[in-house]
Amino acid sequence: MPAFLVACLTGAVVAWGANEAPRSVAALVDSGQWGLSSNDPAVGARKASLGNTVKLATASVAPENAEGEEGAKHELLYKVINFVILVGALAYLLRKPLAGFFVQRSESIRKSLEEGRKALESSQAQLRNIEEKLRGLEEEISRFKAAAAREMEAERERLRQAAAAEAERILQFARAEIDNATRAAKLELKVYAAGQAVELAEAMIRQRLDEAGQRRLVGRFVGELTRKSS
C-alpha cells in the first residue's frame, strides 16, 4: 500500500511537468508494479479505473505550454482537479485499511486506557491496603509498646517482691543463726556451770562423807528397795 501511494503521488507530480509522464504512470499501472496483484479481481477493477483516470488527467494537461496565460489558469485548475482526484482515489483506496487501522488503534488505546485504569485502581487498592496496614502497624506498635510497658512493670514488681522475699529469708536465716548460736552458748555455759557445781559438790562430799554417812546411804538404798518391793 505505501508503494502504491508513493507511485500515485510521484506520477501526479511528474505529470505536471512532462508529457511523457502520464504514459509512464499508465504503463506502470498496466505493468502491475503498483504493488497490487493482478490475480485479485477487485484490485484489477481498481487498477483499470485508476489507469483511465490518469489517462484523462494527462490528456487534459497535454497542451499546457501552448496556451500561455490561459494555460496557467487551466494548469491550476488541472492541478486542483488532479489533487481532488488523487485525494478521492486515495480516500477510496485507503478508506477500509485506514478505518480498520484506526479501529484497531482505537481499540488498542482503549485497552491501554482500560489497563491503565485497572493498574491505577490496583495501585490505589494496594496503596489503600498499605495505608491500612500502616495504620494497623502503628496500632500494633502501640499495643506492643503498651504490652511491653506492662510486662516491664510486672517484671519490676516481681523482682521487687523476690528481692524482698530473699531479704526476708536472709533475715530469718540470720535470726535463726543468732538464736542457734545463743542457745548453743547458753547450753555451753549451763553445762560448764553444772560441771563446776557438780565438781564442787563432789569435792565437798569427798571431804565430808564419813563411815556413818556411808551407812546412812546404804540404809536409804535398802529402804528404797523395800518401797519398790512392797
Binding site: 547450753l187 557445781a197 538404798f221 528397795l225
Partner: peptide, 19 residues
C-alpha cells in the same frame, strides 16, 4: 540398774542443771 550411789545422784543433778 538400781542406782543409790552418790555418783549417780550427782550425774542426775548435772543432767537437770543442763536440761
Amino acid at each position: 540398774v538400781y542406782d543409790g550411789s552418790v555418783r549417780g545422784q550427782l550425774d542426775r543433778i548435772r543432767e537437770r542443771l543442763t536440761g
